[in-house]
Amino acid sequence: MGHPPRMSARPRRDAAILFWALAALAAIAPRAEAREAARRLADYRPAFLECHGPAGETRLAIRRMRLDGEAVALTVDPATLETSLEAESAWRCLETTEAAQMETRFLRALRPRPGDPDEPRLAAVGRSLSTSAGLGHGAGAGSFLTGDLCPSRRPLDREFLRRLADVVPGAPLALSVSGLWLERHGADFDWLMDEAASGTLRIAWVGHSYSHPYVPRLADAQNYLLRPGVDIDAEIFRVERLLIERGATPSVFFRFPGLVADARLMEELRLRHLIALGADAWLVLSPPPRDGSIVLVHPNGNEPAGLRLFSRLLEQGRLPTPFRRIEEAPE
């Protein structure tokens, strides 16, 4: 019996190339499928409606859109500040006014009354620039964990978030997402969505502007969203659209880049029915957190010192607990 013919070097090489090409395609396929599964979003616009649901519940709609061809509203529970995307066909919605909703917790959070803990801060913003714009300290005991995802060339620090979830399973975490970060870190965002879906982390998605404009060494008063020519609607709505298209539901909070804003920007944000989120414990810049502190770190790879400090305080039991959801922070 003769020996089977040997395969020459070239066919073996071609077969190897084909094998690795198929393997690469297999690896790419899930990402392509995820991109194709992105939701189709059109006619995105601000709104302010009082909506009544099939079970008698009441929500306020702050955005309207067509999502995969269906009329959908981004709604906020005026008592809990929880947001949800709701098909308008299941709800009865009518135009409303801020005056009509003034007694709700949501409107109080948008515009604190004289005597509220945040009122002196807002008065100061009215006179000058604020470098901690927004709700900087929450109500009650414990603390509120927040992380900013500013544009970055570095990958998400997944290990930091894994350690957090190991120590505090289901840790509530408000992540402020910039549009440019999301567009450039699709795999990292998908990983975060998986962590949220599994309950490993309980994520609130906070808008952090689309482009996060910043020029090094430029004075704050001419920097960030105070840069000439900034389109505030594009900065706010474009990142909201990206979150919705990728399967997330934006929260009712927005964090100004650099925590910098003036009275005009604060009012522009309020008119779009968003709560400015500040921080009184940006760990690399502030005193240690205390009860009610809104803690800020950057898990986008740009501030490893802050992550190390947070981990050390966490291990030493020096962070106020329990960690609470950001929706609980306003009075």
Results as ranks from 00 to 15, higher is better:
residue 237 F to A: 15
residue 239 V to L: 11
residue 201 L to W: 03
residue 242 L to C: 13
residue 280 D to L: 09
residue 262 D to V: 05
residue 269 L to H: 00
residue 230 V to I: 14
residue 161 L to D: 06
residue 231 D to V: 10
residue 285 L to H: 15
residue 252 V to D: 07
residue 255 R to G: 12
residue 252 V to M: 03
residue 196 A to C: 03
residue 284 V to G: 05
residue 282 W to Y: 14
residue 175 L to Y: 12
residue 202 R to K: 11
residue 275 I to W: 03
residue 226 L to V: 10
residue 276 A to E: 14
residue 280 D to W: 06
residue 194 D to P: 00
residue 226 L to G: 09
residue 279 A to D: 07
residue 181 W to C: 15
residue 242 L to W: 08
residue 184 R to I: 08
residue 232 I to D: 12
residue 240 E to G: 14
residue 287 P to N: 09
residue 197 A to H: 09
residue 166 D to R: 09
residue 272 R to G: 10
residue 259 L to P: 01
residue 258 G to F: 00
residue 203 I to L: 08
residue 232 I to L: 15
residue 193 M to E: 09
residue 179 G to P: 15
residue 195 E to V: 09
residue 288 P to V: 09
residue 212 H to D: 01
residue 164 L to V: 06
residue 281 A to I: 07
residue 217 R to P: 01
residue 278 G to M: 08
residue 173 L to Q: 08
residue 165 A to M: 10
residue 246 R to F: 08
residue 239 V to K: 01
residue 170 G to R: 07
residue 182 L to V: 15
residue 228 P to F: 06
residue 160 F to W: 05
residue 192 L to D: 02
residue 222 Q to E: 11
residue 223 N to Y: 01
residue 273 H to I: 04
residue 219 A to Q: 00
residue 194 D to M: 07
residue 209 S to N: 01
residue 256 F to L: 06
residue 212 H to I: 02
residue 274 L to T: 00
residue 199 G to T: 04
residue 171 A to G: 08
residue 210 Y to D: 14
residue 164 L to N: 04
residue 178 S to Q: 11
residue 226 L to F: 12
residue 199 G to F: 11
residue 228 P to G: 06
residue 214 Y to A: 02
residue 191 W to G: 02
residue 192 L to F: 02
residue 177 V to Q: 14
residue 277 L to H: 10
residue 184 R to W: 12
residue 252 V to Y: 01
residue 176 S to A: 13
residue 259 L to K: 01
residue 192 L to S: 03
residue 288 P to T: 03
residue 258 G to N: 02
residue 265 L to Q: 12
residue 210 Y to E: 12
residue 226 L to M: 13
residue 163 R to C: 12
residue 174 A to N: 08
residue 283 L to Y: 08
residue 290 R to H: 14
residue 235 E to I: 14
residue 170 G to I: 06
residue 217 R to D: 01
residue 214 Y to P: 00
residue 153 R to V: 13
residue 278 G to E: 04
residue 283 L to H: 08
residue 230 V to C: 11
residue 244 I to Q: 11
residue 232 I to K: 06
residue 157 D to Q: 02
residue 279 A to R: 02
residue 167 V to W: 03
residue 245 E to I: 09
residue 162 R to C: 07
residue 225 L to Y: 00
residue 196 A to L: 06
residue 268 E to D: 15
residue 280 D to S: 13
residue 180 L to G: 06
residue 221 A to W: 03
residue 213 P to T: 00
residue 278 G to D: 07
residue 290 R to G: 12
residue 224 Y to T: 06
